[in-house]
Design a protein around this nucleic acid. Structure first.
Lengths: 114, 114
DNA sequence: TCAATAGTTCAACATTTATTGAACTATTGA
DNA sequence: TCAATAGTTCAATAAATGTTGAACTATTGA
């Protein structure tokens, strides 16, 4: 339970991965939901596009592939092959979990007294 | 900028540290603000109390000390000596930064269409 | 079927990290 | 001042991690 959360934070704890994840958050399309209610991976950038954005191209795609795998293993992102490309997108449920962790608890405590 | 954020996530990416941080969030007292507007460390558990809570006691306090240092270096927590003890508390500004990262962006996208 | 494109996996490596126990520092109370 | 308490720092070790280039797999288009 808590370890899964730690794994997510750990995945975001590398500068390259945080850039990738932020990029995905910024440019992921809407989530697709089919007639059965299944949530399918949303449209988003391909691995190649992520490489371009992160490394300015001309850097090892194997490294980006490694980081994408880490993000996927942590449950933060999803990937789906579309023809020759693989499209990446943010896992909304995981994003919501992370958001929820920082809600409440510490909030509203500033200037609340001695 | 982004590296500081990554450092915070990295600090939360270890199960022991996440437990410590969560404990601090749960039991930190209100933040103290003096007449000059300076925000001083809030009251909270001592290092020893954290050791008890995390390890059920009987485990190396040097390890907890190490993790507290990591959290402090990342800017997530603050410590203040009070007599023989050292009291720990959450850094509210850092907490707000983390919270803000997950607001907007991905939110509101679920079920928003194809 | 063949070549080109798009990503992944593998092996090797240099760093970093978490953990442990022992030694050290700082504060309090007798 | 001395002993006890509360934490930190240090050294050593084992494990995990990020990066690289080469080899591999999968898909498309000719």
């Amino acid at each position: 339970m808590s370890d899964a959360l730690a794994a997510m934070f750990k995945a975001l704890g590398d500068p390259t991965r945080l850039k990738i994840y932020t990029f995905l958050c910024d440019c992921s399309g809407p989530v697709a939901v089919n007639d059965d209610g299944d949530v399918r991976p949303a449209s988003g950038p391909t691995v190649g596009e992520i490489c371009c954005h992160i490394t300015g191209l001309e850097q090892s795609s194997s490294n980006i592939s490694f980081h994408l795998k880490e993000l996927r293993t942590a449950g933060l992102i999803e990937t789906e092959r579309r023809g020759k490309n693989i499209v990446c997108s943010v896992n909304s449920a995981a994003h919501a979990t992370l958001h929820a962790y920082f809600v409440g608890g510490q909030s509203g405590r500033i200037n609340s007294g001695v």
